[in-house]
């Protein structure tokens, strides 16, 4: 019995050490790692992607260790507000509503919301979306815009883009509205899908930071500007999105 208690104590101490013993201060980033190429889990189980690398570069500039937490996209804004994470970097679009709750850094990339359909679908342009069943990733701008435009009865919310695309392949929805970059990968991975030429919406990506944390916001913007000037930002984006 004594030995068991000793083992438990030792384990606890070890865990505590992992959590708090590192010398440098850490910056906690929240993301939803189901959004390639911005963030996704690679073969070794690590969260990688454009956002992960930019965050790493920003953290280094600011002299912090970076810790990435994977959570539902839905929860990111509230996690920023409650201080669970220092910032969210998740291919998140700047919107007026989100600006009421959090601050956004300067834009580091531009996102385009596109429509994925099956080849031969009767959805040939945006007008044809009326009355169709649209699949979205829950809580994304695609979700918010579509629900506003077409109403809840015409929008199915999935936990990830991959599930929404799976539903499209199964014929459970008529199209999926999602960011251009992951959309390209989804179309590549699933035969018989294509992206409509007309974009559904164009938007700016930025990091969400708590309203009261202006100190972090300023430091973040400063680091971002430096990275841009050094050409590091373009380098990271090019690495994941080869120029067409």
């Amino acid at each position: 019995m004594k030995r068991i208690i000793a083992a438990i104590l030792a384990t606890l101490m070890l865990v505590a050490c992992f959590a708090g013993c590192s010398g440098k201060k850490t910056l906690v980033m929240g993301t939803n790692a189901e959004f390639p190429p911005y963030e996704f889990v690679d073969d070794s189980g690590k969260i990688v992607g454009i956002d992960a690398e930019i965050a790493q570069a920003v953290a280094e500039k600011m002299g912090y260790e970076l810790e990435i937490r994977d959570m539902k996209f839905d929860s990111l804004i509230t996690a920023v507000q409650s201080g669970n994470i220092d910032f969210a970097l998740a291919g998140m679009t700047v919107t007026d509503e989100r600006l009421l709750s959090v601050n956004f850094s300067n834009t580091y990339a531009t996102g385009v919301q596109v429509v994925i359909v099956k080849e031969g679908s009767d959805i040939v342009n945006l007008d044809a979306l009326e009355g169709k069943m649209i699949g979205v990733q829950s809580g994304t701008t695609g979700d918010i815009y579509c629900t506003d435009d077409y109403g809840q009865d015409h929008v199915k919310q999935y936990d990830s883009g991959a599930l929404a695309v799976a539903a499209l392949v199964n014929g459970q929805v008529d199209c999926v509205i999602i960011d251009n970059e992951p959309a390209k990968n989804f179309v590549k991975a699933n035969a018989g899908l294509k992206i409509l030429d007309t974009e559904y919406a164009v938007e700016d990506y930025a990091a969400a930071i708590a309203k009261d944390n202006t100190e972090l916001l300023d430091a973040f913007n400063k680091a971002l500007a430096e990275l841009k000037a050094e050409g590091k930002l373009d380098e990271i984006i090019k690495k994941y999105i080869p120029a067409e």
Partner: peptide, 20 residues
């Protein structure tokens, strides 16, 4: 909600998404 049903939890999340 994983099969895209909007039960009461999902709808509360939707409201949180709207109101932040």
């Amino acid at each position: 909600s994983v099969i895209a049903l909007r039960d009461v939890t999902k709808q509360a999340q939707n409201i949180a998404n709207k109101t932040y």
